[in-house]
Design a protein around this nucleic acid. Structure first.
Lengths: 104, 104
DNA sequence: CTGGATCCAACGAGATACTG
DNA sequence: CAGTATCTCGTTGGATCCAG
């Protein structure tokens, strides 16, 4: 379960979910604020954990594609559920604040 | 979404999911390896984020109960999906390893 | 274009001791 | 019982420079 730990991992997977094949620079552009180091590091970890497949095309200039593996795709329903939860959360933050206020 | 970041947060929520009301020491016993510091710190953060409700009984000895808020409970389907995914992952780690081996 | 290497700051997390 | 206070250390993450 610690496979998902890391500032950008879920975000990377989200992007590879909505856009099945992405190159390094495309991910970099889509994920605002990520550094090259963190992107490649997280991609390597996700690859080692079997969530992401890395395909290298021996060309000049180099071209590398990333896509989710079968296991990675199996995660999508779960991440979708989390995404929907975050949206739900924004819909009723007042109830939360009110409950906390009452409590104290 | 960073609300869930932290080594023990998901685990805490899992326990409050299967056992709706737990005291501090009960959580401490159930979560193997957590320190008091991390437990109370994560519980405070979860409380501030509106996922966990903290109830103090002004008794001697002190008694504090933790339970999920409505928002916290809404997370359970998502966490369940993740849990099921981790189990699925253990069922086909061979396919992953094989794919990696072929790739390289 | 796709990174690797290096350095550094900030944060997370554990161990330990102490308290109302 | 339910924490807080420190200290320390390892890890994470960012910036920058370099390379095939």
């Amino acid at each position: 379960m610690r496979v998902l730990e890391g500032r950008w991992k879920m975000i990377i997977i989200f992007h590879l979910f909505s856009e099945p094949v992405l190159r390094f620079s495309e991910l970099e552009r889509r994920i605002h604020g990520v550094s090259q180091k963190m992107l490649s590091q997280h991609l390597r970890e996700l690859e080692n954990d079997g969530l992401v497949q890395r395909t290298v095309y021996p060309e000049v200039p180099p071209k590398v594609e990333y896509r989710l593996t079968e296991v990675g795709q199996a995660l999508c329903p779960a991440l979708d559920a989390i995404l929907r939860w975050t949206e739900l959360r924004r819909d009723l933050p007042h109830a939360v604040a009110a409950a906390n206020a009452e409590q104290s």
